[in-house]
């Protein structure tokens, strides 16, 4: 076990503990029919406590009906460096959008 909390006053680390709870990202479903949306992050020692902390921190005013928590370090994200190669190629595929197509006058429900 690493150091416990007892500091002798000379410890340069005033937290009294060199250990840290990991960071978790919190996703809240505001109401049924909606997706979970990222709400923020918090620290917790494990997933069970992270869920509970999320409940107390992010749904104090009835903001949610369901919660997800994910270890921040488990999230893989695209980097800004990849932005051009990831997202720009999608910009010119205008035929993916319905407005690309001409519809003869009078044709409905299309």
């Amino acid at each position: 076990m690493a150091s416990t909390g007892s500091t002798d006053g000379k410890n340069p680390d005033p937290t009294g503990s060199g250990r840290r709870w990991p960071l978790w990202e919190v996703f809240v479903r505001a109401r049924r029919g909606l997706s979970h949306v990222h709400a923020g992050s918090l620290h917790a020692p494990d997933a069970e406590m992270a869920l509970r902390n999320a409940r107390d921190l992010y749904t104090r005013r009835g903001e949610g009906v369901s919660l997800w928590v994910v270890r921040s370090s488990d999230i893989e994200a695209s980097t800004p460096d990849e932005r051009d190669s990831f997202f720009d190629p999608a910009a010119d595929k205008i035929y993916r959008h319905p407005t690309f197509y001409d519809v003869p006058e009078g044709v409905e429900h299309l």
């Binding site: 416990t4 005033p14 709870w21």
Partner: peptide, 18 residues
């Protein structure tokens, strides 16, 4: 500081448990 130090044992315990 006192609150943080007084709570160190509980934070450590939760981490050890995890």
């Amino acid at each position: 500081r006192a609150a943080h130090q007084a709570g160190a044992w509980a934070r450590d315990a939760a981490e050890a448990y995890a």
